[in-house]
Amino acid sequence: MDLFSPANKPEIRIQELTGERIRFILTNTDLSMANALRRIMISEVATIAIDMVQFDLNTSVLADEFIAHRLGLIPLDSTEADKIKYPRDCNCSGACKECSVELNLHVKCTEEDTTKDVTSKDLVSHDPRFTPITEGPKDAGILIAKLRKGQEIKVKCIAKKGVAKEHAKWSPCAAVAFEYDPFNKLRHTHYWIEEDEKKEWPQSKNANDDFPPLDDEIFDFTAKPNRFYFEIETIGSMKPEDIVMNAFKKLLEKISSIQMGLHSNDVPINGREPTRDVF
């Protein structure tokens, strides 16, 4: 197998890396691997998010479930999400310190002539590792509700670990851009045009990093995509490079659990009852 020959060695070039986004090019690997990475980053990297909300008091104009939903969508710092258990793996019956984080919110408006903003900054976490994210001291926080004089909200939130497959609030990514073959040399897509393709379809920015086709280039129908452009934008709960690393970790975990399932097959195939022929 030529998976690991020098010509087939996967390479990664990081083009941009900031606190909230990463752009990189993955080369010399198959589309299926690149797509697996993309899918895992979108839906299977674990984060922490508010999952249960108990309302002690809500005299605001917003309904309980409306506020609960907004609370769920607030990004919590999830850089240490792997230190916490999934609720299903925990021995406790409801929520304990091993598998959940409690956050409290208690705001009352006492101002006479203005409304009071309830924001993510009013959430008080019991665990300093998992707090609502803020962008420095000037950040006003994420608006949850507005209160008039005398109105009050008092809630207890339980945050849990989860994946975006179950609910998008657990996704660490706001967007994952994925592209290959910006010049459409492989003809995997078809551009609808009026007259001139080049005039009507602007080039993607990844075209600057790819190899433009020659004017007389013949279509190579055996060509396979092997250069993949990724751009990941986070919601702030995790560093972008951590999302990528966690995605690889998750993929390895998946493979290992299947290997475990297959491993126990070593013994039983001869000892068990054979299946009937159904065909």
Binding site: M1, L3, F4, K9, P10, E11, I12, R13, I14, L17, F24, L26, T29, M33, L37, E241, V244, M245, F248, K249, L251, L252, I255, S256, I258, Q259, L262
Partner: peptide, 25 residues
């Protein structure tokens, strides 16, 4: 079995490549 083993090492390899690229960056 072989497929799983190969996929695992390929995945580990790409992961390592990313780690290095990140460190160099």
């Amino acid at each position: 079995r072989k497929g799983l083993e190969d996929l695992k090492s390929l995945c580990a390899k790409i992961s390592e490549t990313f780690y290095k690229a990140n460190r160099d960056f």
